[in-house]
Design a protein around this nucleic acid. Sequence first.
DNA 1: CGGCGGTATTCGGTGTCACTATGTACTGGT
DNA 2: ACCAGTACATAGTGACACCGAATACCGCCG
Lengths: 119, 119
Amino acid sequence: MGKQQMTEMLKGTLEGIVLAIVASEPAYGYEITAKLRDEGFSDIVEGTVYALLVRIEQRGLVDVTKVPSEKGPPRKVYSLNAQGGEYLEEFWKSWSFLAERIEQLHHHHHTDNPQHEGE
Amino acid sequence: MGKQQMTEMLKGTLEGIVLAIVASEPAYGYEITAKLRDEGFSDIVEGTVYALLVRIEQRGLVDVTKVPSEKGPPRKVYSLNAQGGEYLEEFWKSWSFLAERIEQLHHHHHTDNPQHEGE
DNA sequence: CGGCGGTATTCGGTGTCACTATGTACTGGT
DNA sequence: ACCAGTACATAGTGACACCGAATACCGCCG
C-alpha cells in the first residue's frame, strides 16, 4: 500500500482518529500509539502522536492529568472536554461529507462498465 | 462545517479525487475545477487544481494534450496513463483501509457500546 | 556495579500538500 | 478601448505527519 499516500491521507484525519480514541476513554500517548498499531496503523510512531497531542492540548480540546507510572516517567492522560467534543462533531461532519463523495467516485470506477461504444 | 478541517483532510485525497475524475474521462484544469464545484467542493479554486495537475504531470501519472479553445488560451487536456492507473489503484487501497477504520470509530461513537471486558 | 531493554515523553528539522493572491493570455461583446 | 469570461501559471504561507535523537525512569541480567 502506498505509504506515501497514507501519510498524506492521514493529514487532518489522524487528529480526528486520536480525538475519537480519547473520546471513548481517556488515554496517554504511549497507550494511544499502541492502540493505533493494534488498529493496523503500524507505521505511526510515538513522535507523531506526541506532537499531535501537544497541538490538541494547546487548542484546548483535551484535558490533561499527570499520573505516576510504575514503569517509567509519569503519564500524561488526555481526556476529551466539551470543546473537544464539539470539534469532534465537526470532524465527523467533514469526514462524512468527504467520504460520501469519494465513495461515489470509487463506486463509479467499479460499476462503470463502458461497453465503450458511446462513440 | 470546519473549513480548516476540510483543508487538512483534502491533503492526499484531493489528488486521488482528481485522478479519479480524469480516469473516467480526460479533462482540462478549468473543467475539473468546475466539476469539483458541482460535486460540492465549493471552496476549491483554480490555483489549487492547477498546482496539483502540474505535480501529477511531473510524476508521469497523466498524459497531456494541448487543444485550442474558442474562448481563451489553449486547454491542457489531462488523461490518466498506465502508471497513473496503478497509482490510482494504490490510492483506492489506502482509502479503503483508512475509511474502514475510521467508520469503525464513527460507528463506535454512535452506538456507544462500552464493552470494556479486557479489564 | 553497569549496561540493556522496555516504558514514557520531548523536540528540532524535513517534505508535502492545499491555500492565497496575483499575474498572464486569449476571445467576444459593447 | 474596455471589460467579463475563459484558461493557465506561480511565488509565498501555514499546517501537518514524519524522522531522528535525546531524556527520564524502572527492573533485570551478567
